[in-house]
Structure formats: structure tokens, C-alpha cells
Amino acid sequence: MARARKASPKKAPRRAKPAPKRTAASAPRLPKLAVWKFASCDGCQLSLLDCEDELLAVAGKIQIANFMEATRAVVDGPYDLSLVEGSITTPHDAERIQEVRRTSKFLVTIGACATAGGIQALRNFADVEEFTRAVYATPAYISTLKTSTPIAAHVRVDYELRGCPINKAQLVEVLSAFLHRRRPNVPDQSVCVECKLRGNVCVAVAHGTPCLGPVTHAGCGAICPSFDRGCYGCYGPKERANPAGLRPWLGRHGLDAGAVRRVFGTFNVGSDAFKQEHEAHG
């Protein structure tokens, strides 16, 4: 849920304009940005470093105060904006996220792990001790929780940016919105709308390809249908999604119950709508 304060677009951003009488020594302080990692692949925070055209400009408007993937220098909190990547999977991380929340004015989660628990939330439907034995020779060395949960299950979250991975243009939009104290302009429609905007022929209707587009949150720009494949739901369910309504279509397009279970059992399996559909085909 977005909680960014709304502001009129005409209103000058609070921190971008220096106050007239200040000397250089007391120049307005730049907002402090922190980037935190929990269980994840690093891809969403990499999106920030992948903003090759914007990175140096962004670094001129904000102070990168804590971003371990990018810098050795760490500035103590509190932080004006924290970006949180990854899900909570260990007892230590469950404590650490509380500290991150305490030290952050705004906390924005980035990506499917942080907003839905990620692919590692498949453990929520299995026996994690058996998982540990399957992967590690000495399970006693491994400290892990039985579940992988999104950040919002542990602390208050001010805004959630979807995607596996997130769209870097949307990340820049969210940064800009928080710096300017306005609501991020991130559409919450389905991937189908993006397909229409892009002028794609519908892969489901025209080609009979199983596609999660109707129930999936927009944001990627309908990449998969543009590459002649069905959407596989990596942005998670859109608002008020009804995956059960897709069942007849997916069945007609050749997916049996096991395949439907698996198609919803990926990066956003921890989100309610996809979780229900995953479990309904158990």
C-alpha cells in the first residue's frame, strides 16, 4: 500500500531548492538512502546500478548512505528512504528487519522476494528440514526459518514495488516520487493492458499459449508476449485478481492440474491470489 504523502505537482520539492540565506557549511543536507538485502538474488538492487544514465545524477540528489553492494562507506542512520530487497528466512533476519524499520523514515520494498517471499517461499508448502537435508550434508550448520515471508509480514511498509526483477524505470520513478513527496506513478492494471498499449497480438487468444497476463500486475511492459511466450506472472497478482477464472483457459491450452499448480508456484507463490491457486491444484 502506498503511503507516500500526496503533494501538488506544482509545489516545489522541499529539498531540491536551497534556502536563500544558508552558507555552504550549513547547506541543506541531502536525503539519505539505504539499500538493504535479505534472502534474494541481488537483481533488484542491481537495478539501481543498472540505471547507467541516471546513476550519477541520482547520486547528486541523494546521499547513498548505506549500500553494501556499491560502497564500503557506511553512514549511520536514521535514513530518509530505505529500499529493502529480499525475504525473511532466518531468525537473525527477522530481528534485523525490525532495526531497519526503526532507522528508516520511509521503507520501500523492491521485488517479488520482499513483497511476496520470492521463489524461496516454496518452502512454505514443504518440509524445510527435508529441504535442508537434501541440499546440505550437515543440516545442523544451517539456521533457517520454516517459511520465507515478505517484509510486510514483519514491519510496516510504506510502498511496495513489484516484479522479479523490478523495472528500473519504475525504481527511478519511486525514488523521484519520495524525494519530491508525491505518490509514485506506478499503474496497477494487468499485463493485458500493457500488451494492448504495445500493440501485441494476444498470444492466448490467437496462438493458444497459456498466459497469466489477465491476472498479473503490470510493470514489465508485457515483455513475454512480445517475445511470443505467455506471461509467467513474475510481477505477481494484480489488484483484485481472480486466477480461478483463468482455469478453463489454462486447461484448454494444455495445462493439467500439476502444470497449473506449478505455473502459480513460482516467484510470487507467497502472495494470496497465487498461493490460493497453487494450493487449489495440490
Partner: peptide, 23 residues
């Protein structure tokens, strides 16, 4: 933290491997 890819890959279709292991 461990994410147990080799464990939850069991039972998935061969065609799913490139999208899942990318993560």
C-alpha cells in the same frame, strides 16, 4: 541465507529450469 533451489526444483518440468535457476 540458504534458498534451497536444488530441493524445490524436484518435481518441476524440464522447461521451467531456465526461468527458475536464473533467480
Amino acid at each position: 541465507p540458504p534458498r534451497f533451489f536444488e530441493a524445490f526444483m524436484r518435481g518441476r518440468g524440464f522447461a521451467e529450469a531456465p526461468d527458475i535457476t536464473a533467480r
